[in-house]
């Protein structure tokens, strides 16, 4: 910019950065009612939890109970796929606690040096066959889902539920030929509830949560393929004490009741 600019020009040039900073400041807060824990100043009494999408209902309830038992402490929850959350944490997202739907993703963060201490396994999940309520393809077993003409949907091998699916196939000797390999178990469930697919392998907790929308069919071999959910608090936690007590709470007996009601097994 040349020195000939007028005062008005200059004030406009100044106004832009001010305006932009204002936009960033206004939008950077996570939500209007959530205190910001991302700053350098320790904001005691607030825990930001990043949790796997399958934990949404249970953790919402657990956070409510935790807040009740610890007045003045707020739990701020964010739910997404474990892998997405791990990537966000690696890129510097301000999380205090991370609960993953598999040990592999947690190990990735541990290798990155993001965990304060070892993760605790607090829940487990197994696969089940889900079919639309009217069961149009007459599925009663995993072998039925492998019949030609049956539209079966599974998770892709790259995601935890897909890795578990491959193990179940191996244990049972049933070779599925899926019409789709989804990137998330939610997408598998969606294809069943909408009636697009005849059958799909999802978690027992998904079947429980879907209620009337799907019919669950147990797969004996799936009992041996257990997906473990670890939880850990992070090195960057703004309030390590609050983060640690939330982790202890989730791994404790009160939380067990809530998790079992949602269909989770022991950790």
């Amino acid at each position: 910019m040349r020195g000939s600019s007028t005062g008005r020009d200059r004030s406009r040039a100044v106004a832009l950065p001010v305006l932009l900073s204002a936009v960033v400041l206004v939008t950077a807060g996570r939500s209007a009612d959530a205190p910001d824990t991302g700053g350098a100043v320790s904001d005691s009494g607030s825990v930001t939890v990043f949790a796997a999408a399958s934990l949404r209902d249970s953790f919402t309830e657990l956070a409510r109970q935790f807040e009740q038992e610890n007045p003045g402490t707020r739990v701020v929850l964010t739910f997404a796929g474990s892998s997405d959350l791990a990537t966000q944490i690696s890129e510097g997202a301000p999380a205090d606690v991370f609960a993953s739907a598999d040990t592999r993703t947690m190990a990735r963060l541990q290798d990155d040096g993001r965990l304060a201490g070892d993760p605790v396994d607090f829940a487990s999940n197994t696969l089940e066959l889900a079919v639309p309520p009217d069961n149009p393809a007459d599925i009663t077993s995993l072998a039925d889902a492998a019949r030609p003409g049956v539209k079966t949907v599974v998770c892709a091998q790259q995601v935890p539920c897909g890795a578990a699916t491959a193990q179940v196939e191996e244990l049972s000797g049933v070779r599925l030929s899926p019409v789709s390999e989804e990137a998330s178990v939610t997408d598998v469930l969606g294809k069943i509830t909408s009636g697009q697919a005849d059958a799909g392998l999802v978690y027992a907790t998904d079947v429980q949560r879907a209620g009337e929308a799907v019919l669950g069919i147990g797969v004996p071999e799936a009992a041996d393929v257990v997906n473990t959910y670890p939880i850990a608090f992070l090195t960057d936690a703004a309030d390590p004490d609050a983060a640690r007590s939330f982790v202890d709470f989730v791994a404790g007996p009160e939380a067990r009741v809530v998790l079992e009601a949602a269909g989770f097994g022991a950790g």
């Binding site: 892998s83 892709a156 899926p178 019409v179 789709s180 989804e182 294809k191 697009q196």
Partner: peptide, 19 residues
């Protein structure tokens, strides 16, 4: 849906590989 060669386009492949 998402199946290699049938419905898994490049954006879906990127979404999956990212995992």
């Amino acid at each position: 849906g998402s199946l290699e060669g049938t419905t898994r386009t490049l954006p879906l492949e990127i979404y999956l590989q990212r995992e």
